[in-house]
Amino acid sequence: MVLRFRYKLNFLSKMVRLLFVLLFSSFTMSANSQNSAATTVNSRATIIEPIKITKSVDLDFGNVISAFNPGKVVLSPNGDRIAQGVQISSTFPGNVTAAEAVVNHGNNKYSITLPQSFTLYSQEDPNQTLFIDEFKVNPETGETLDILKIGATLNLKAKQPAGLYTNSSGFNVTVSYN
């Protein structure tokens, strides 16, 4: 009887161990079965037209009469000019035009970059210079196609020597998508 009891105890002990092993292995199997997962990701790209800018009119301050003191001529983007410290002739105004450039940008917003300043040189004496600064532009943003009108301020020294002042390299007007 003692032998039978031991046999049953031994049998129960083996069964408990077997159940424990089976139970433990099922936990580790389920833990291992969740080590990775996958999904499918779609991708796409939309190509938009590149932004374009084309100059249509150059910036021209027209005829300016030098004075004994320094002065300036402010040319607005709409083509109006105001003299400060110098004179402009209504009889001989010369060719007065704000610069114009056409921007093709689709329906995308963009920014405009203009120079801080620009130098003009006398054709007779390259050591004589004029400085242009305070660039202004209208409009700043627009629809699919914009006409930018650009004005600036022309700064003259006292007794600025007469002559044609120009700079064949021109100044950059840069447009960039935002």
Results as ranks from 00 to 15, higher is better:
1 M>F: 08
2 V>A: 12
2 V>G: 10
4 R>P: 10
5 F>D: 10
5 F>M: 08
6 R>I: 15
8 K>L: 14
9 L>D: 06
10 N>I: 15
11 F>Y: 13
12 L>W: 15
12 L>S: 15
12 L>P: 00
13 S>Q: 05
13 S>D: 04
14 K>M: 11
15 M>P: 01
20 F>N: 08
21 V>W: 06
21 V>K: 04
22 L>R: 05
26 S>P: 01
27 F>P: 01
29 M>D: 08
29 M>A: 15
30 S>T: 14
30 S>C: 11
31 A>K: 09
32 N>K: 07
35 N>W: 04
35 N>M: 05
37 A>M: 13
40 T>L: 13
41 V>I: 12
41 V>T: 07
41 V>P: 02
43 S>L: 07
43 S>R: 06
43 S>N: 07
44 R>A: 14
44 R>W: 14
45 A>Y: 08
48 I>H: 07
51 I>S: 01
51 I>T: 03
52 K>T: 13
54 T>A: 11
54 T>S: 12
55 K>N: 09
57 V>A: 03
58 D>G: 10
59 L>H: 01
60 D>G: 09
61 F>M: 04
62 G>S: 03
62 G>R: 00
62 G>Q: 01
63 N>C: 10
63 N>L: 12
64 V>P: 00
66 S>C: 06
67 A>V: 03
67 A>G: 09
68 F>N: 05
68 F>Y: 02
70 P>N: 10
70 P>A: 14
74 V>F: 01
75 L>W: 02
77 P>M: 03
77 P>N: 04
78 N>F: 11
78 N>C: 05
78 N>A: 14
82 I>V: 11
84 Q>A: 09
87 Q>N: 11
87 Q>V: 11
87 Q>C: 08
87 Q>S: 13
88 I>E: 00
90 S>N: 12
92 F>N: 13
93 P>M: 06
93 P>H: 04
94 G>T: 08
95 N>A: 12
96 V>P: 00
97 T>G: 02
98 A>H: 01
98 A>F: 03
101 A>R: 02
106 G>C: 02
107 N>E: 09
107 N>A: 11
108 N>Q: 13
111 S>P: 04
113 T>S: 13
118 F>M: 04
118 F>Q: 00
121 Y>L: 03
122 S>C: 06
122 S>G: 08
123 Q>H: 07
125 D>I: 03
126 P>Y: 02
129 T>W: 02
129 T>H: 05
131 F>W: 03
131 F>N: 08
132 I>D: 01
136 K>G: 07
139 P>D: 11
139 P>M: 13
139 P>R: 12
140 E>F: 10
141 T>R: 11
144 T>C: 06
145 L>G: 06
147 I>D: 07
149 K>E: 06
150 I>G: 00
151 G>F: 01
151 G>E: 01
151 G>P: 02
152 A>Q: 01
152 A>V: 02
155 N>T: 05
155 N>I: 07
156 L>D: 00
156 L>C: 04
156 L>Q: 02
162 A>L: 10
163 G>M: 06
165 Y>I: 02
168 S>E: 14
168 S>Q: 15
169 S>E: 15
170 G>V: 06
170 G>P: 00
176 S>G: 12
177 Y>D: 03
178 N>G: 05
178 N>P: 01
178 N>I: 09
